[in-house]
Design a protein around this nucleic acid. Structure first.
Lengths: 204, 204
DNA sequence: GTCTATATCCAGATAGAC
DNA sequence: GTCTATCTGGATATAGAC
């Protein structure tokens, strides 16, 4: 009996998801320019030609992944922003969450790495550049706002909130890239040490 | 009158230096895989073919740059190690120096970026991998030692010295990549805020 | 939907004239 | 030493059989 349309659709979605998973791994580890379609296809266990039944081009795969990653990051940022809590707790929550997830979820680590690489690279498709242009600022803005809130509450160190936000995200970027590319990195450094950069009170 | 051997040698060295400067710019901005020989040649104002009179291959240029960069970083690390001073001052000196140089020297910023990218990339020539393997640990070890010294002196926060060193360098990596790829980043965040991550005493 | 085979393009590297 | 022209290999993308 022939497969129904719905079954086909299911297979298609499952396969596409598999491609996404493998592509994320490859792009996160090797960057856009350093990743070859062949590698992704091989990792996904399909022929290279078949890739093009799921994605129009290498650019399209990358764009899809980046959009997804940025959206998730922005959602998470908004979640932190909307927390009804002291700034200090928001910061601690965010850092703890990021650390924990980098440590436990390979996929999250790769996602962090993908964003970090893409945002700091000049050799990515124009579509991706535009996408990043539009969506990159939100996490910075939200963290800057939280820092400002914290300064009002007296818990956060002095200094430009925007600069604090840059320090926050660039350090996260550095860490996630490090832990994504080092096979046996051991455990992440204690999140409290990182948090201490921003908080006046050392005994967290 | 024909040029002397010495003059030829001078021209050769000057040109090679020009290639090095441009190659560093390109590799730092676009990574190894994303950089094309043509771009370097164009930036240096010479024909693509001429590149191969100065370097055997793309790999060779990259290797040369990386070796130079790693050596400089290691030298600087040793300098910090040999300072006859309190750990706290060593840390402050190192951070201030790095921050200042990232801010004022394009070339240094590019060098930081090159190392950060290379150390965290899997798609680099094997020679470079071996080179990095052999030379990457020293800065980590030295900073870890300084942290340990600081803990004994009571100025540095508790925690694994090695983890503190990772936090130190990954944050520097993140920052330098950020500032290398953002054209108008404004000023660097205050180095004291970064230093506060490692020091018990907040009033620096 | 999936594969193999192939077309096309581009980057690294070489050859040879000046 | 420098250039233009060219070779070669590899990667993206397409065509067509099953």
């Amino acid at each position: 009996m022939a497969r129904t349309e719905q079954q086909n659709q299911q297979i298609r979605e499952a396969r596409k998801e598999m491609i996404r998973v493998e592509a994320l791994k490859q792009f996160a580890a090797k960057g856009f320019a350093g990743t070859r379609i062949k590698d992704i296809a091989q990792a996904a266990g399909i022929a290279q030609g078949l890739m093009y039944h799921y994605y129009q081009s290498k650019d399209a795969i990358f764009t899809d992944l980046i959009e997804d990653a940025l959206d998730k990051l922005n959602q998470a940022s908004i979640h932190v922003k909307n927390m009804d809590n002291l700034a200090k707790n928001k910061i601690l929550y965010a850092i703890r969450k990021i650390y924990k997830t980098i440590e436990t979820s390979e996929r999250f680590k790769q996602t962090c790495c993908l964003i970090a690489q893409a945002e700091n690279s000049t050799v990515i498709p124009v579509d991706v550049k535009i996408l990043i242009e539009g969506k990159r600022d939100l996490p910075y803005e939200i963290i800057a706002e939280v820092m400002k809130q914290g300064q009002k509450e007296g818990s956060v160190v002095e200094g430009s909130p925007h600069e604090l936000a840059i320090l926050f995200w660039t350090s996260i970027d550095g860490l996630s890239i490090y832990y994504a590319t080092h096979k046996n990195p051991g455990y992440m450094p204690d999140y409290k040490i990182f948090a201490a950069m921003f908080l006046k009170e050392k005994n967290i």
